[in-house]
């Protein structure tokens, strides 16, 4: 069986965009179904678990409003991640300005997931989430995009407005930190 490659994904996205531009609404449904879970996972890992629905919606609305200007310099998913990340940062900035959100200390982050852990049967999965949650924002974003979404360093760098080298370093540091946390646990 042939494994689908990123080129296949890009070609499929391009075809779907063309169909949508011609007025085919089913193409929009396919695009949303293809990318919504990954966006939701990324939003949740960014600490925005409560507003994930809204963030993903806003991401798609913004993307579709500018879809005819999408030049396919990067993949559609990378572009969507970029929009989502900006929305997350905007929201965090606004919450900080209004005093609605306090920067989470490491212990608080772990406690937040502890509450969730009670509902999670798999203790190992909970520990993994704790380990990921303890990472710095940049390390976590790189790690999640690399491990759960399988993005190349070039795409991660474009999404996070960074460089490939810096992303590679963040990934390996994050992996080491996760391993250390799991070894100690």
């Amino acid at each position: 069986m042939r494994v689908p490659t990123t080129q296949d994904d890009a070609a499929l996205d391009a075809a779907l965009i063309k169909r949508w531009m011609r007025g085919d609404q089913r193409a929009a449904t396919e695009i949303v179904n293809r990318h919504a879970p990954a966006l939701a996972r990324f939003a949740a890992s960014s600490g925005e678990r409560d507003g994930v629905d809204e963030l993903v919606q806003d991401t798609f609305v913004r993307a579709f409003n500018a879809l005819d200007a999408f030049r396919a310099d990067s993949s559609l998913r990378t572009w969507l991640f970029t929009i989502l990340r900006r929305l997350v940062l905007d929201r965090q900035r606004a919450e900080r300005r209004h005093g609605g959100m306090v920067e989470l200390a490491e212990d608080h982050a772990v406690q937040g997931y502890n509450a969730l852990d009670a509902l999670v049967a798999d203790e190992t999965a909970a520990r993994v989430r704790q380990a990921v949650q303890r990472l710095s924002t940049m390390q976590r974003d790189v790690f999640v995009l690399r491990v759960t979404e399988g993005l190349a360093y070039a795409d991660i760098a474009r999404t996070l407005d960074s460089t490939e080298g810096a992303c590679r370093v963040h990934y390996h540091n994050a992996m080491r930190a996760v391993k250390e946390f799991l070894n100690d646990a």
């Binding site: 609404q25 449904t29 919504a36 939701a40 996972r41 994930v52 629905d53 919606q57 579709f64 993994v128």
Partner: peptide
């Protein structure tokens, strides 16, 4: 394990499609 642990929260994709321009 990490991929399986970081599960995606449920998203109402039909609602998203309905509000798209």
């Amino acid at each position: 394990r990490v991929r399986a642990s970081l599960d995606a929260p449920h998203i109402d994709t039909a609602h998203i499609v309905a509000i798209l321009p």
